[in-house]
Every structure is written in structure tokens, then in C-alpha cells.
């Protein structure tokens, strides 16, 4: 095991051992929530951190997958595992269609179009009552498994989520190190030059988009099974914004950042709900504070701190090329 993987392995092992130390299912379920959120945030990080495409409609992928699996396994009466596979395929098919629209722009245009796309699917979920149940959503979504794998039990479900998270970390870690991952960051920093030296910028971005959609869909399937219920709220603007906050707060472009951001946002949301019911306002203030005080996120800030402690001198010089100026 490489030195880089060690902290992740320790963190995942610690999360897997939560059921051994806690008798109450509350902490086990909280850990499951963090894990599911982390999988989604890792997906969005491909776009925000590595492709430089700031999506404000990421919740559409988990939302589509969750609605598909919920509809197929309740109304459709299909086996949950098979329904999950169909939902994954369906979400990727819709994502490919959306890519044709969204990837025609970058920068602020991309922000607005992804937000609009997510709102449209939200609108369908909310208004198309005969199919989606409208505001009431779809309930009674069955979890897969059986006697040999009792996923009805919180600890077994947590271990399933952690297994998916481990898979996501391994796959994305390898992807970011691969030539394609390097090329993706090239299209983020210098799209024109990448095009000029012969890379197909659109196709590289398309791969990133589909990868993000796939992990978003995985998070959506786990979400539907965890709550055994889906509603339009999981595709609301606040839901997309929460995932974006996880990525930005933790540190976009890092592998550990989305995990730490997911833990932070989920814990904050759960703790806040004990004392006050103004989560939306707290979310808003968190955004403002993060942007003004910690624009790079926790992980890069921490890395800068340790690096400067090692060298006993201030942090690195500012970047010469501002990312926002690079247009496609």
C-alpha cells in the first residue's frame, strides 16, 4: 500500500469500526450519511476541481438515479439490484444528453446551464405527480440483499457504503494520476493550448462529465436505499449547493478534500438541526464565511501550513495565470 493511500485506509477503517463502538444506530447512520455525501462530492470534484467546470446542478445525477431505482423497484416491481443497474444506465444516458447542452459552454455559462438543467428535472419530479408522486415523493424503496447480506441492518448498510467509497477513491485516484487525468487538468488551465497541441478538449471534458455523473448516480442509489424514500428536495438548488460546499470547503482538486467537506457539512447539518431549524440560513452564512476566509478550502490550507512549517518560510508565490481568464 502506498504512503498516499494510508491515511484514506485508516479513515475508512475507523468509519467501518463505528458500529463496534456505538450501540445506538444514530452514529452508524450518521457515518453512512457522511459516506454517501462523500461519494457524491468526489464525483462533483472531478468537474469543479479537475475540469474547472463549476456545476451548480450536480444534484440532478443522484436525483435521477434515486428516482429511477425507487420507481423501478416499487411501481415497476423489479429486483433492487437489477433496478439499480437500469437506474445507473438511465442516469448515464440522460447525462450524455445533458452533456451535449452543458458542455457547449464554460465559466459562468456552465454554472447557469447546469443549474437550469437541474431545475427542469426538479420541476418534472415536483409537478409530474402521476409518475413521481409530486411533493410526497416515492416511499417504501426496498434495499437489496437477503439472508446472506442483511442490508436492513444499519451496520451492514454502512459497510456497503464504505465499500463503494473505497472503490470511488481507488478509481478516481488512479484516474487523476493517469495521462487522461493530467490532460483534463490541462484543459482546465489552458483549454486553447490543449486544443492547439491536438487534444480533443470537448471529449476530455465529456469523460469527466460522465465520470462525475456515474459517481453521483452511485451516491443517489445509496441515498435512495438509505432513506428508502425519494423526494424532489434532493434535487433542489440547496441540495446542489450543499455538494458544491463540500467540495469547496474541503478543497477542490484534492482527493481528501471532498471527504472532509462531506463530513463537515453533514455533521454541521445534523448538529444544527438539534439546536436551530434554520439550516438554510446557516448554509448561506457558511458559504459567505468560507469564501471570504478560506477560499481554497481546508485541505490546501492545511497543506500550505505544513509545507511552510517544514521550510520555515511563507507559502508559495501566487499563481501567474489566473484560471478564470483561460477561456475556451
Amino acid at each position: 500500500m502506498s504512503a498516499r493511500a494510508l491515511p484514506f485506509a485508516v479513515a475508512l477503517a475507523a468509519m467501518a469500526m463505528v458500529p463496534l463502538f456505538s450501540t445506538s444506530p444514530f452514529y452508524v447512520n450518521l457515518t453512512s450519511q457522511v459516506t454517501i455525501a462523500a461519494i457524491g462530492a468526489l464525483g462533483l470534484n472531478v468537474l469543479v476541481g479537475h475540469a474547472g467546470l463549476n456545476s451548480l446542478g450536480f444534484a440532478v445525477f443522484p436525483g435521477l438515479a434515486a428516482y429511477l431505482v425507487a420507481w423501478l423497484s416499487t411501481v415497476g416491481g423489479i429486483d433492487p439490484v437489477f433496478a439499480a443497474l437500469v437506474a445507473l444506465g438511465g442516469t448515464l444516458a440522460v447525462a450524455a444528453l445533458f452533456a451535449l447542452v452543458a458542455l457547449r459552454t464554460t465559466g459562468l455559462g456552465f454554472v447557469m446551464i447546469t443549474m437550469a438543467l437541474c431545475q427542469i428535472v426538479w420541476g418534472a419530479a415536483y409537478r409530474w405527480t402521476s409518475v413521481t408522486g409530486g411533493d410526497n415523493g416515492l416511499s417504501g424503496v426496498p434495499r437489496p440483499g437477503g439472508a446472506w447480506l442483511p442490508l436492513e441492518k444499519p451496520e451492514y448498510f454502512l459497510w456497503l457504503c464504505l465499500a463503494v467509497l473505497a472503490l470511488a477513491l481507488v478509481q478516481l485516484g488512479r484516474f487523476f494520476d493517469s495521462p487522461l487525468g493530467v490532460a483534463l487538468r490541462g484543459t482546465r488551465d489552458q483549454p486553447r493550448r490543449m486544443g492547439a497541441v491536438g487534444y480533443d478538449v470537448w471529449r476530455i471534458r465529456f469523460v469527466a462529465w460522465m465520470l462525475a455523473a456515474a459517481w453521483g448516480a452511485a451516491a443517489g442509489l445509496l441515498y435512495a436505499w438509505y432513506h428508502q424514500f425519494v423526494s424532489p428536495h434532493m434535487m433542489a438548488v440547496t441540495a446542489s449547493a450543499e455538494v458544491l460546499l463540500m467540495v469547496v470547503a474541503g478543497g477542490a482538486g484534492t482527493l481528501a478534500g471532498p471527504l472532509i467537506g462531506a463530513a463537515l457539512v453533514v455533521l454541521l447539518k445534523n448538529l444544527a438541526s438539534i439546536w436551530i431549524d434554520r439550516w438554510v440560513m446557516l448554509l448561506g452564512f457558511t458559504f459567505v464565511v468560507i469564501v471570504l476566509l478560506m477560499p481554497d478550502g481546508i485541505v490546501p490550507g492545511f497543506n500550505r501550513l505544513t509545507a511552510s512549517l517544514k521550510r520555515l518560510r511563507p507559502g508559495p508565490a501566487p499563481k501567474l495565470v489566473p484560471r478564470e481568464r483561460a477561456d475556451g
Binding site: 459562468l108 438548488v237 440547496t238 449547493a241 448554509l283 448561506g284 458559504f287 459567505v288
Partner: peptide, 15 residues
């Protein structure tokens, strides 16, 4: 700075 501006205005919208 695009992303911080988006996050800030979104945060203000929520508030």
C-alpha cells in the same frame, strides 16, 4: 474570481 462569486451570491440568496 468566478467560483467564489457564485458561492457568495448563492450564500446571500439563502440568507
Amino acid at each position: 474570481r468566478t467560483l467564489p462569486q457564485v458561492l457568495l451570491t448563492l450564500g446571500l440568496a439563502f440568507i
